[in-house]
Simulated assay, not measured.
Amino acid sequence: MPPVYATRALVAVLCELAADADPDSVSVRLAATPARDLDAGDETHTLDPDTPVLSDFYFPSAGDALTSVFGVDLAAPAGQTAGRFVSHPKGDHTVTLADDLHAQLLVGVPPWEPGEVRAHNRHGTRREFVVVDADPPAADAP
């Protein structure tokens, strides 16, 4: 099973979101960028250009009104979430039935540092997690 890749900046922001929400948990939809499109040094050149790297997130509060009424997550475009980050404030990395299982699931625990984030597949099996020093391409101005 291939590793799960994420940018260092994304992991840092996810840890900040989890720390801000503590003692409550947070669940964040994640988007990936192909390695070839990342702005990085030589590190991403060792990855296959098609390798998805988790690089962006959708704000956790986006679409809450619709979700709470219909029980369906309508805030993120269909097919554009490559994974999910969930925080476990009680400190257990184990994936639970309450976690929204995507193909890739990142689980963070206190003390909310990047080294305390683990990757799992949709069945809760731990996967290798690699943080890369890269940034997604700059968004085009509207």
Rank of each mutant, 00 (worst) to 15 (best):
residue 38 L to K: 00
residue 92 D to I: 12
residue 21 A to L: 05
residue 36 R to H: 09
residue 45 H to G: 15
residue 140 D to R: 13
residue 138 A to D: 15
residue 108 G to C: 00
residue 4 V to W: 02
residue 58 Y to N: 06
residue 114 P to M: 07
residue 137 P to I: 08
residue 51 T to F: 12
residue 76 A to L: 00
residue 107 V to S: 04
residue 93 H to Q: 11
residue 76 A to K: 04
residue 5 Y to M: 09
residue 46 T to R: 15
residue 97 L to D: 15
residue 105 L to E: 02
residue 100 D to R: 06
residue 105 L to F: 00
residue 124 G to F: 00
residue 86 V to M: 00
residue 16 E to N: 10
residue 117 V to F: 05
residue 49 P to E: 04
residue 81 T to F: 11
residue 66 L to I: 09
residue 83 G to Q: 02
residue 140 D to N: 15
residue 20 D to N: 12
residue 63 G to L: 07
residue 63 G to N: 07
residue 6 A to F: 00
residue 135 D to V: 06
residue 56 D to C: 07
residue 31 A to F: 09
residue 78 A to G: 15
residue 127 R to K: 13
residue 99 D to G: 07
residue 68 S to L: 15
residue 93 H to Y: 10
residue 80 Q to N: 09
residue 104 Q to P: 03
residue 13 V to H: 12
residue 60 P to M: 06
residue 69 V to N: 13
residue 132 V to Y: 04
residue 71 G to A: 04
residue 133 D to C: 08
residue 129 F to E: 01
residue 27 S to V: 12
residue 40 A to V: 10
residue 53 V to T: 13
residue 86 V to Q: 01
residue 5 Y to L: 08
residue 97 L to F: 12
residue 89 P to M: 05
residue 136 P to I: 08
residue 31 A to R: 10
residue 41 G to H: 05
residue 101 L to S: 05
residue 117 V to M: 02
residue 9 A to C: 11
residue 75 A to S: 04
residue 45 H to A: 15
residue 26 V to S: 14
residue 135 D to S: 12
residue 126 R to K: 09
residue 129 F to M: 00
residue 135 D to N: 12
residue 122 R to H: 05
residue 83 G to M: 06
residue 87 S to H: 10
residue 42 D to C: 15
residue 73 D to M: 11
residue 78 A to M: 04
residue 9 A to I: 07
residue 88 H to E: 14
residue 110 P to G: 00
residue 138 A to E: 15
residue 75 A to V: 02
residue 4 V to A: 03
residue 95 V to G: 06
residue 37 D to E: 14
residue 108 G to H: 00
residue 59 F to V: 10
residue 52 P to A: 05
residue 28 V to R: 00
residue 34 P to N: 13
residue 99 D to H: 09
residue 133 D to P: 11
residue 14 L to I: 02
residue 140 D to E: 14
residue 142 P to R: 11
residue 35 A to K: 11
residue 62 A to F: 11
residue 131 V to Y: 06
residue 138 A to L: 12
residue 80 Q to M: 14
